[in-house]
Nucleic acid binder design. Sequence first.
DNA 1: CACTTCGTTCAGTTAAGATTGAACAAACTA
DNA 2: TAGTTTGTTCAATCTTAACTGAACGAAGTG
Lengths: 173, 173
Amino acid sequence: MENSFQDDDSLRSEEASQEWSDGQSAALDPTVRFIEQMGIHAQGDGVPRIAGRIMGYFIVYGGPVSFAQLAQELQVSRASVSTNVRTLTDLGMIDKVARPGDRQDYYQLANNPYLRMIETYLLRMRAMQDLLQKADDTIPANMHSTHSRLAQMRHFFETAVQSNEQLIKDLEQ
Amino acid sequence: MENSFQDDDSLRSEEASQEWSDGQSAALDPTVRFIEQMGIHAQGDGVPRIAGRIMGYFIVYGGPVSFAQLAQELQVSRASVSTNVRTLTDLGMIDKVARPGDRQDYYQLANNPYLRMIETYLLRMRAMQDLLQKADDTIPANMHSTHSRLAQMRHFFETAVQSNEQLIKDLEQ
DNA sequence: CACTTCGTTCAGTTAAGATTGAACAAACTA
DNA sequence: TAGTTTGTTCAATCTTAACTGAACGAAGTG
């Protein structure tokens, strides 16, 4: 059960400090706090909380980290680890890595974890552009002000897409 | 009940075309289709579907449009119109406009509807920056690789924030 | 004044996702 | 072969947020 393969910072931490009403205790450990906050923030972004916590875990412990370890450390079911880890790999935020002679799956933080997120964001904007294009094509031509507003929005997304494409280039160095 | 005050494109449309399994009919009207798709897309962005539909409605019929008209045309409760219209005004995407001698509330598309959305987006990124800063401050200094990953993420958000601030400037002309 | 219209608020319902346990298949081990 | 371990899938549960109807206050109108 011990994972001997991990980069420098080795702490785990079960430390408790703050008392809760139900008698349980919450960790004041800054790493744990950070991981939980990543979960909250992710939720606000429409991403499952557990996916956010997993990301937080990887930022703290870069990996490679085993599937089972994630489930145990974050106290979530293997089913959740399975789905959320897939989500994150699909997003390109973490990578699956093989460990010779070990049947378990290991994962680690991707190279530029948030870069792919922008690409996903770009996809959404392009979908919106399609939507606007289609509307422009199908809505009667005599609805002039409607077409003018559609054009304005298209211009917005055009600009935004270009800006984010440039951002990606900048971040790729 | 008639709204005499509306810009050029005056169509409403109750037209139905496509048959559904339950015997009801869906509108093929391109404007209705567009409005519904805006609802779907909004949902995907974590915004309530009705807010998206309202936005769609305003893109099609720039406004001013009355509160009651929104409820009727989009077939939603006045309660929903109330909350979603507030959300959209808070986001700066639509504006409330007064009509002398008319007690009803009217709304119309804001000037640069999506610009404020980017500002909201910026707020989220700044919150993330705070989160990272706080983690950097509290996590033990000897966790070197953790701090290095935190620094990498901070750099990302720094760059992203700058890029989006520039985008806002560009869009403001 | 009584009566209507308009928009907000709030408690309750509904709908949508996230999370889980259990069943399962694949790949090992003995 | 039977028995483990590992990750996935699926149905059921739990949680969260959206949406609604009804009650309400404010602001008309008659």
